[in-house]
């Protein structure tokens, strides 16, 4: 496939869709559907630079801190639980229950404990993100190649070496699958916790726009949130392809590509 053709295929539909939006709302008098030109016109003045620094950055920081804590806890506990058959059987129903609770309903509970400030939001993100990571780590550790495990035991690799060179790499494809889900849960919780109670943050700002009927600004906020989601997914994929290069290559080789 030539580069031109590929570019047309990749960019064609997005361009058509944006153009459709632009022209469909061109002369729009509707209060709810302002022209795309107005939305983009207010974009820069709405967000740059105060709201980027004052709202988007704090939101992102909370998300990153929460996600990082959930990742470390999830992988750590997941390895411990995955390695022990008894511990797994003991905790499985409890974990199934906690996983099944929709994370946003924890927001009202955590407000009781932690108030409405940063701690609450970070804890909300941690409690939501940890389950996919934890359960996928357990699965990943459980389905490790027995032969490899026995081999590394026979060669008397130290515990640390076994963890570092056998267990974690072996489980990493599953861990990343869990982390990807956790990231999208985390974004949802970042927004939800700010919609509940906050004095800054992107979710707070968008709801504020909606309540004051600042419609073009509200749309610009939705676009910012969308771009944020896309950007985070991209960064995640970059990290993933880097760390899982061996695995993706293996899969491709198995498929005969």
């Amino acid at each position: 496939m030539s580069i031109v053709r590929r570019a047309v295929l990749a960019l064609g539909l997005p361009v058509v869709l944006v153009a459709a939006w632009w022209f469909a709302t061109e002369g729009s008098q509707s209060f709810f559907w302002p022209p795309l030109r107005d939305i983009l016109g207010t974009f820069a003045e709405t967000w740059w630079p105060d709201r980027i620094m004052g709202d988007v950055v704090p939101s992102l920081l909370r998300l990153l801190v929460g996600f990082a804590i959930a990742f470390v806890l999830g992988v750590g506990l997941g390895v411990a639980i995955g390695k022990s058959r008894a511990l797994r059987a003991y905790l499985e129903p409890v974990l199934e229950f906690f996983r099944a609770i929709p994370p946003p309903v924890l927001v009202p509970i955590l407000i009781l404990f932690f108030g409405i400030f940063n701690t609450m939001k970070v804890v909300v993100i941690v409690t939501g993100c940890i389950w996919p990571i934890l359960l996928n780590t357990v699965e990943g550790v459980r389905s490790l190649d027995e032969v490899l495990i026995d081999t590394s035991k026979i060669y008397r690799l130290s515990r640390r070496a076994r963890l570092w060179y056998n267990i974690l790499p072996g489980a990493s494809p599953q861990i990343f699958a869990g982390a990807r889900q956790a990231l999208s849960v985390g974004i949802i919780l970042m927004v939800i916790s700010e919609m509940f109670a906050a004095s800054n943050g992107i979710g707070f700002t968008i709801i504020q726009f909606q309540r004051t009927f600042a419609i073009p600004q509200m749309f610009s906020g939705i676009i910012v949130l969308g771009l944020l989601g896309v950007a985070l997914a991209l960064v995640f994929r970059l990290v993933e392809t880097r760390i899982l290069r061996w695995y993706l290559g293996l899969r491709a080789a198995q498929r005969g590509e």
Partner: peptide, 25 residues
């Protein structure tokens, strides 16, 4: 091939971004 870039773009948009719009409508 023509839709994959659009799908890749729309999919990670968090659904909660739609809350204000839905409430408004």
């Amino acid at each position: 091939a023509a839709t994959s870039s659009t799908i890749e773009f729309l999919r990670p948009i968090p659904s909660v971004a739609l809350i204000p719009l839905a409430v408004l409508l």
